[in-house]
Write a protein that binds this DNA or RNA. Structure first.
Lengths: 341, 341
DNA sequence: TTGAAAGCGGTACCAA
DNA sequence: TTGGTACCGCTTTCAA
């Protein structure tokens, strides 16, 4: 079914059919009706490729994330998509699984699709990509990396502040034995969260001790890292996890090993995804406003919808400590009485 | 950057550039090198729309799901995508949020994109869509609905069997007060799981009692439905949830109300998503082989890769009971001693 | 081994 | 209010 078929059936020119379909004015209503009828009868669906090629500006945004399974990314995607749909755009997502190689090929594919804007929300990063993308006129948003240019916007989350609050909070509760559980990120600009953690540890000096472990992002990775950590013999009273997703796995392993959270060991997450409220015990975490990020991404990718947004900007996102059930005073400071609840 | 630009820079015809880029034989290696050099220098990226229009067969598959947030759908997507990538295809996902209206517009968009195949993995269903899609030559896969035709394949999961095993198992444990928590599905071909549940209840007759409640799919909906259920005054000793995702929310509400799972009330999920192992207590559930489904979807959408797959088929998927920690004998049968833990 | 040119399905400008 | 038609960027005969 092509435009031509519709035109023939309606006995008009292709131009007229096109006018009708694009709601352009200047078509006698009787003609319009005839065309519409033909469209229905033939069950005609315009070819997006042809339209795009013919110059219709793309209404598709691309978004690349590290791990769609982690609700953190999905939340941003959903927020972006909501705004996008509201304005007649749609969004295509791609996953990198934290592989730089996949990042590159996904970007390539988005470019071939001639998306109207591209959001790169990943942990891993290929420096050459930033160069390549900077050379284009395409609106791009990077998460956590790079600097703004004419067409590039950057969203940066204040992880450091969040980690610092978390540790300060834990230390005030009497914790001195810490552990950090992060995720493997091949050749990554190492997790700012882990760096912030280590810096904080260093600041407290010899009064605190700590260990770190890592696994793949997810329940299984979190659990495995926790097992590894415990197997090392180190006994942290507080475990700071790089995110909620992994923390859920950590929780499971601790339970398995007979360690009660938070009585025996406190655990914290990061991101404040919905899951953090539903695991047991619910997680003390740091909120990252994913919806806000999604909205900002949309605005950055569609400058035309955003007055006062001529070119790329650098946007800072603040985080917020959220205290729930997975943390409590360190065992040594707790009332020596047992836990009758 | 267009093909023509590359051609000029390499001082060859567009045809030659095209040959080089498509690995067609018959290009002098010196020429090939010159072209490749120009491509690099210009940072040329072919326009997928133009390629598609020019007749290159689409390598993009479309998949529409009800709720990407529910890991069940995401798992199928990931499995499909893995196979797809392996064969040089890529997959575009779209969400309906259980809205028939969104289903329709998403299908429309996929059709405009001229995807090579379309998987419709949703609960809600617009009968007219089946008609419309049947008329096309496009390979389509429906989940849980419709009948196979020349271009349509159907994947049907044996929910009934799973629900029956679940209830039989619970009844054998002494449970007699049941509840079913499902999700709202506007004008839906009502959840086969709920139907199976009700049929089973009817079969047991007056010896059992039951109630049902529903919420939106997800933690929050599950929790809300549980609250509603409990508020009604009915006290089930076993709660059968339509899926694991909602069961996690149910677990949370029960805890909130001071009900211990499984001691006071047993809870079951469905799907066996990874989460079901990581909530506390881990969920007794019914496994649905998502990876297998993803693979079958891929095969069905790409007949050319599948000998013995000339046209649509009907594929039955069996389920399997998975017993974990969230179920135990009904309270009345347990040792009458109180709950000293 | 390489080039010229006819589409592919639409859009939009220019005439009629 | 309509129709004719030159592109859009690329693939693919058909010739050279």
């Amino acid at each position: 079914m092509k435009l031509e078929d519709v035109a023939q059936r309606a006995k008009v020119s292709m131009a007229t059919v096109s006018r009708v379909l694009n709601a352009s004015a200047g078509v006698r209503s009787s003609t319009r009706a005839r065309v519409l009828k033909a469209v229905k009868e033939l069950n005609y669906t315009p070819n997006l490729h042809a339209q795009t090629l013919a110059g219709v500006k793309s209404r598709t945004l691309g978004m690349i994330v590290s791990n769609l399974e982690n609700p953190f990314f999905l939340d941003i995607f959903r927020a972006l998509e909501a705004d996008a749909h509201r304005q007649g755009y749609d969004v295509i997502v791609a996953n990198t699984d934290y592989e730089a190689e996949q990042l590159v090929s996904n970007v390539r594919l988005m470019l071939r699709r001639r998306v109207a804007g591209l959001a790169v929300i990943v942990s891993e990063m290929e420096p050459s990509l930033i160069q390549e993308l900077t050379a284009l006129k395409l609106p791009v948003v990077f998460y956590d990396v790079g600097a703004p240019t004419r067409n590039i916007s950057n969203i940066k989350v204040n992880y450091r502040w969040g980690i610092e609050r978390l540790i300060e909070y834990l230390r005030d509760l009497g914790h001195r034995q810490f552990a950090f559980i992060g995720h493997h990120t091949r050749l990554a600009p190492l997790s700012e969260r882990q760096t912030a953690f280590q810096d904080a540890m260093a600041r407290y000096g010899p009064e605190v001790r700590f260990a770190t472990a890592a696994g793949s992002d997810g329940f299984v990775g979190g659990r495995r890292a926790a097992r590894e950590l415990l197997a090392s013999g180190f006994r942290p009273s507080a475990i700071v996890c790089v995110n909620d997703f992994m923390a859920a796995g950590v929780l499971r392993e601790l339970r398995e090993q007979g360690l009660r959270v938070p009585v025996d060991v406190s655990v914290t997450g990061f991101d404040n995804i919905s899951l953090s409220e539903f695991v047991f015990p619910s997680l003390t975490t740091v909120n990252i406003p994913r919806s806000e990020i999604g909205r900002l991404v949309f605005r950055s990718l569609t400058p035309e919808h955003d007055r006062a947004q001529a070119s790329g900007r650098e946007i800072y996102i603040e985080t917020e400590l959220v205290v729930r059930e997975s943390t409590c005073p360190a065992p040594s400071l707790a009332t020596p009485a047992s836990e009758s609840k």
